[in-house]
């Protein structure tokens, strides 16, 4: 475990925590971006260059912007006057999340002796990824293309005004 890993993990987790804890939703979205960027850096640390750049391009460049737009369009940035930001059933939610983490953490810690020990980084250049996408994974690729088209049209129709003549 290198020093870099600890710094990046702390950055990612701090971003994630801030994203769910802060009151102002725009701050949440910006912290979420920090978490996304930290995750991209973790991918780089793992040697997955291509995925790291895709992560930044898609999450920081598109998803974070979408979230921000949605926040502004629904006027959610203003904190609600009554009731706070947490749900009435927050205790149940928190205990479920804590239970999930306990189980996952227990599983990881218990299986530590059997985890693989490889140290040399596997090579994954763009050429290999491209060849894999075009040969073995060509069907998933086509399905993702179809899904993205459907999602694009669906999102436009869902978010569109129902009034006549309005765009």
């Amino acid at each position: 475990m290198s020093f870099v890993f600890y710094v990046l993990a702390a950055m990612t987790l701090a971003g994630a925590l801030a994203a769910v804890l802060l009151k102002n939703l725009v701050h949440c979205a910006l912290s979420l971006t920090v978490a996304f960027a930290g995750l991209a850096l973790l991918f780089l640390e793992l040697g997955a260059q291509f995925v790291a750049f895709v992560q930044i391009l898609v999450y920081v460049g598109a998803v974070a912007i979408l979230v921000v737009f949605a926040i502004l369009l629904t006027r959610s940035a203003e904190t609600p006057k009554a009731g706070g930001v947490f749900s009435r059933t927050w205790l149940a939610g928190l205990s479920v999340a804590a239970a999930v983490f306990a189980v996952l953490g227990w599983a990881v810690l218990e299986s530590t002796p059997w985890l693989p020990q490889t140290t040399e980084a596997p090579a994954a250049d763009v050429e290999q990824i491209g060849e894999a996408l075009m040969s073995r994974y060509v069907l998933p690729l086509e399905i993702v293309a179809l899904l993205l088209t459907a999602a694009l049209i669906g999102a436009v129709i869902v978010a569109m005004h129902e009034k006549e003549g309005a765009q």
Binding site: L30, F53, I56, V60, G61
Partner: peptide
């Protein structure tokens, strides 16, 4: 870099957020 074009666009995409901020 192996994917330097992608890297450049990834960096370009992150300027959008700073403009919004």
């Amino acid at each position: 870099l192996d994917a330097s074009l992608l890297f450049f666009f990834a960096m370009g995409a992150s300027t959008e957020l700073s403009v919004f901020m």
